[in-house]
């Protein structure tokens, strides 16, 4: 079973498009013809089992990793054909929150958030510091976290600080690599909430690489399923969960999935009925 072939990517409506992506490590095939389109302004989840190549897909799209075949477009422009300068200006429109924040360990949180602003803008240092403090508040960190070093923060706070840094340049698209992994259920729910809020307020396109079904049901408008080295499904969570594929069945119809689903439904209905 495979997703219907996608039309060639067109226009600014698709912020990111991938066609025929192939990734192999030695004899191990991770991707064999991955196609995906990400629409402007949506929250899309990319899910798949461990080792299905979720992170490899993200790294390939971001150009952090070479792939054997395939084409990638950012904002309607093919990445491989871009000159260095153009590419760098597009890169500023894409942010990434890495799994453990990937903060620079020799800088404190404030300095971490200031790095991209200092590097890419000609703004005054004081204003940059104010802006960075605001971003730190935006991701829900207390003001005194700004002076702390990454090693002094908890895992959840490090993720938030990493998010603040990825938002520094007001990107239009933000990748979240396993944002809720390693967080307790309350922390994870709070982080999902934060992602939803930022999506709403900053109008960012959110790409959520996850295996947390709670997050998928709570905030994703569409979900892409990576299995058998390709995208086997790309639709709303409600439609994907009833598809007939062994991995989807196992993933979406287990006890954990049912719980996540009912919980999300009650939350949604609670939100709509005042």
């Amino acid at each position: 079973m495979s997703a219907p072939a996608l039309a060639p990517p067109g226009g600014e409506d698709h912020v990111i498009s991938v066609r025929g992506l192939v990734n192999r490590f030695g004899t191990q095939v991770v991707h064999d013809g991955v196609d995906i389109d990400i629409r402007r302004g949506e929250v899309i989840g990319i899910i798949g089992g461990s080792g299905a190549g979720k992170s490899v897909l993200m790294r390939s799209i971001l150009g952090l990793q070479r792939f054997q075949a395939g084409r990638v477009w950012w904002f309607g422009q093919e990445v491989a054909t871009l000159a260095d300068e153009q590419r760098r200006s597009l890169e500023r429109r894409v942010g990434v929150m890495f799994q453990d924040g990937a903060l620079f360990s020799s800088l404190n949180v404030l300095e971490n958030v200031m790095v991209p602003l200092k590097e890419h803008t000609r703004l005054d240092e004081h204003f940059i510091a104010d802006l960075a403090r605001m971003k730190i508040a935006l991701v829900g960190l207390p003001p005194d976290a700004a002076d702390k070093f990454p090693e002094q923060l908890s895992g959840g706070m490090r993720k938030r600080a990493g998010l603040a840094r990825s938002l520094a340049l007001d990107p239009e698209v933000v990748f979240f690599d396993e944002p809720t992994s390693g967080l307790d259920p309350i922390g994870a729910a709070a982080f999902d909430e934060l992602v939803a809020t930022l999506h709403e307020a900053l109008h960012i396109t959110v790409i959520l690489i996850t295996h947390d079904l709670d997050s998928v049901y709570r905030i994703c408008e569409r979900v892409a399923v990576l299995a058998d080295s390709r995208v086997i499904a790309l639709d709303t969570p409600e439609k994907v969960q009833v598809m007939d594929h062994p991995w989807i069945r196992q993933c979406f119809q287990g006890p954990r999935a049912r719980m996540a689903y009912t919980q999300a439904q009650t939350l949604k209905s609670a939100a709509t009925t005042p």
Partner: peptide
């Protein structure tokens, strides 16, 4: 309206100078 929301969010989260 979107920009208005953004302004409000920023105004609310703006840190007072320390």
């Amino acid at each position: 309206p979107a920009d208005r929301d953004l302004l409000e969010l920023v105004g609310e989260r703006m840190a007072s100078p320390r």
